[in-house]
């Protein structure tokens, strides 16, 4: 495995993708993608709508099986090999675009679902005290402890997103996958939550791969940026090198379904 360079430093890749192709409904979504995500860093995945950013995330977390190519996890092996996916998932936390929360449960119960893999599905026991404490601390981390007992569907979009982030943090993950984790929070809060994430990544040496819609945030938050265009990697380099020219190249290319994307989506 080759080392990645960001600035002058060399990093060990936590995840390596080689020749990844995904078809959906007979249409190629991702076309022989190769890249790597460095340990202890934040990588932003950017690109126009429909380019396959979410699909890439779902390949990484094992929800979508690729037609070709390989995803290798450092120290474990390829995702297709037996046992690797399970171990990879155990140390991974995922933040979803649409929150993926259960509306009628209190916020803290949704956070506890981040620990569902530690419980037997048929256990009738209530959540152990230690787990509830971890969930409460995770909610405190995102500044939502005061709403812990509120029904999740009574929370605002931004608050729900923070519950989704707390559900990821409660797992104490090694790898954080985020599909537009800050899509429904205002820019100020996005900066704050991003800064919080950055702090955890640095402190615990985590790896984060985030699909980001807001390019400004991607530039500030990420160490590296991977730009997808037309199902291929069009930019792969340090965030500082992602200039206006690189941005224009990614967002003006034809989308895979043939419709032209007229304006860059960089709110």
């Amino acid at each position: 495995m080759n080392a990645l360079t960001i600035g002058s430093q060399a990093w060990r890749p936590a995840l390596t993708i080689v020749g990844l192709s995904v078809m959906r409904g007979g249409r190629p979504i991702l076309n022989e993608i190769s890249t790597a995500f460095a340990e202890g860093t934040i990588t932003a995945v950017v690109g126009p709508s429909g380019v396959g950013k979410t699909t890439l995330m779902n390949v990484l977390n094992g929800l979508v099986a690729p037609q070709a190519g390989r995803v290798a996890v450092a120290g474990l092996g390829g995702l297709g090999e037996p046992g690797v996916l399970r171990e990879m998932r155990r140390r991974t936390a995922m933040v979803f675009q649409d929150h993926a929360l259960i509306g009628r449960l209190p916020a803290i119960d949704n956070v506890l679902l981040g620990l569902a893999d530690t419980r037997h599905p048929l256990s009738l026991l209530p959540w152990p005290r230690a787990a509830r404490e971890r969930a409460a601390l995770a909610l405190a981390d995102v500044g939502l402890l005061s709403r812990a007992t509120a029904r999740t569907d009574t929370l605002s979009g931004g608050e729900r997103q923070r519950v989704g982030i707390a559900r990821a943090l409660v797992r104490a993950p090694r790898l954080i996958l985020g599909d537009e984790p800050f899509a429904s929070v205002d820019p100020v809060l996005a900066r704050r939550l991003g800064g919080e994430l950055r702090r955890l990544v640095v402190r615990d040496g985590l790896t984060a791969v985030l699909v980001l819609h807001q390019l400004q945030l991607a530039r500030v938050l990420a160490d590296r940026i991977v730009g997808l265009s037309g199902g291929r990697v069009a930019f792969d380099g340090p965030a500082g090198a992602f200039d206006a020219e690189a941005e224009a190249a990614i967002f003006s290319a034809p989308a895979p379904n043939g419709d032209r994307v007229l304006s860059p989506d960089n709110s």
Binding site: L63, R89, A100, L113, G114, D117, R119
Partner: peptide, 20 residues
């Protein structure tokens, strides 16, 4: 969505039924 979140975290099929 909530079930996918659980599966992405390695929760079994039965766990998805129970928790999501």
């Amino acid at each position: 969505g909530p079930g996918d979140a659980l599966r992405a975290h390695g929760v079994s099929r039965l766990g998805v039924l129970r928790f999501s």
